[in-house]
Design a binder for these strands. Structure first.
Lengths: 153, 153
DNA sequence: TTTCCTGCAAAAGGTTTGCATGAGC
DNA sequence: GCTCATGCAAACCTTTTGCAGGAAA
């Protein structure tokens, strides 16, 4: 590991964190970029990416694991799991059930030397909205596929 | 969902599945491409990608969720979880502890209408090799960062 | 005043797609 | 024979990087 640089709380970083708290959860870099841009019109996407990386090293945010092409990020608000709708892409937070917490092994079977730093539980399935609408759902606001940055004007 | 086309077991698909069983687990598309190419020298990377997508729809393989940039794939061999080493990128399979299985909720708290189709547990931490070597490990064979396809000759 | 950060633009790199040809069934 | 799958090459899109100027501390 590197000799650890010091961390400056720039205006860009403050606003990135503020917007992450304000907007709907689990934005990807572009959604966040659009939100931040409304307050800092000259910020660049590269800055957003760089800062998400750094903020996640520092523990302010975390990267959500996904099988898709875009990364999504989470403001760190204590332990919780995720439920992914495989039809519309929505991700929902789940509070950690204490019983699960107690049972999940500290040392996974057969990996004596592995030091667990984080355990994640991810549910995959069909969310309520998709189930009620069927498979051709179009409830725009609740579903999300890949998201692009809005075009420069 | 589409009207469901019929699925042909082409030589390419057979060999992709055979190689996935043979090689070390969780290859990404390039590693798999290289393995398959030794038996089908003219196969294209696009075919590998297309087939991984289709084979995962059909349930023969599954996509591993990751926070990295590359997708990794798993031949479907019953329920198991993964331990990810955040230092070297190695992914190891963990057998499912029955106690965990029993406790993980069928319906996650607060999501009454969600139908769970799959539950994944992912451990993140430091693997034995990295812990014993320290943070500047170089045990080539056991660690993997991003992997590139071998250059065309 | 030193170091870290930003914006811009360009590159990188993984994945997807269009199209003409070829292989399953 | 009718589809579906393949190979090739080019496009796509997200993420990363180099660099010169600017802001924290």
């Amino acid at each position: 590991m590197q000799p650890e640089k010091d961390f400056r709380l720039t205006r860009q970083r403050q606003i990135i964190l503020e917007e992450m708290r304000r907007m709907r959860p689990h934005p990807n870099a572009c959604e966040l970029y659009d939100a931040v841009k409304s307050r800092l019109p000259h910020i660049s996407l590269a800055t957003v990416y760089r800062n998400l990386e750094i903020l996640s090293e520092k523990g302010f945010v975390r990267k959500i694991i996904t099988s898709g092409r875009q990364k999504r990020f989470d403001i760190n608000a204590g332990a919780h799991y995720h439920a992914h709708c495989i039809l519309c892409g929505t991700i929902v937070d789940i509070p950690v059930a204490t019983e699960v917490m107690r049972v999940l092994p500290e040392k996974p079977d057969g990996l004596e030397n592995f030091r667990v730093m984080e355990t994640r539980v991810e549910f995959f399935g069909h969310c309520g909205a998709c189930r009620s609408i069927g498979t051709t759902a179009e409830d725009e606001d609740s579903r999300r596929g890949p998201v692009r940055c809005s075009p420069a004007e």
